[in-house]
């Protein structure tokens, strides 16, 4: 089991009140799955993503990533997990404006301490893999939205993470380029990478092989879409 969430709860203090956002989430995700988490605004999907992405810790409950309980780890250990185990893809791409595509892709490896030469070889390969061999030295402002998102995906894959975690990856793209990104996810998933997409877009959700719905901090229904996807 790649991810196991056991009774994950998260609440925020608002004055004297505890506001529960996640009210006991149980979820298992296997290696190689392509899962979409869907839910309306306020359903807690961003909080769930932050917890799965080790950007935040649950108030209670256990979160096992590759069998290790990460709910109790300190900030430094969480940083290391974000670096090695999780590849983030954001709605707004979040590329470094002053760095070119290659430097952006190499950044996670810089924090992992990978030797410079190895970094460069791997980042170049990844950019070729996402179809940007010709744009290696271009800066984000010289790239289209779809190209920027592909640079971000290459960056997310840099340290060979266990999981690709995408938050509304097509939210800032038009339909056609969004489609390209989703096609890339499918390709990557077919190559064995676990993909977890958080979205409120039903069409994006339908592309996943498994769809998890979140409402008011609880998992609502779970649909296996394996058949329909094939």
């Amino acid at each position: 089991m790649l991810i196991r969430l056991e009774n994950i709860r998260k609440s925020y203090k608002l004055g004297n009140n505890e506001v529960p956002v996640l009210r006991g989430i149980d979820l298992d995700i296997d290696s190689g799955e392509y899962v979409a988490i869907m839910g309306p605004s306020g359903s807690g999907k961003s909080t769930l993503m932050n917890i799965i992405g080790c950007l935040d810790r649950p108030t209670s409950g256990n979160y096992y990533l590759n069998g290790n309980n990460v709910a109790t780890l300190d900030r430094k250990a969480l940083a290391q997990i974000r670096n090695r185990e999780i590849g983030f893809v954001f709605q707004q791409f979040n590329l470094m404006a002053r760095s070119d595509a290659l430097e952006n892709v190499m950044l996670p490896a810089l924090y992992a301490g990978t030797p410079a030469k190895e970094r460069k070889v791997r980042a170049t390969e990844l950019l070729e893999r996402v179809g940007l061999a010709a744009q290696i030295q271009q800066r984000p402002n010289q790239l289209s939205g779809g190209q920027q998102q592909r640079v971000a995906i290459a960056r997310a894959l840099m340290n060979r993470p266990s999981i690709l975690l995408a938050d509304e990856p097509t939210g800032a793209l038009d339909t056609r380029t969004g489609e390209e990104v989703l096609a890339l996810f499918e390709e990557l998933n077919a190559e064995g990478i676990t993909v977890l997409v958080i979205t409120h877009d039903q069409e994006v959700g339908n592309r996943a092989r498994r769809l998890v719905r979140l409402r008011d901090g609880l998992l609502e229904t779970e649909t296996s879409q394996v058949m329909s996807a094939q």
Partner: peptide
Amino acid sequence: REIGLRKALGASEG
């Protein structure tokens, strides 16, 4: 935002 991104990509506080 840049700092947040760097942290998400695995930069430790140090």
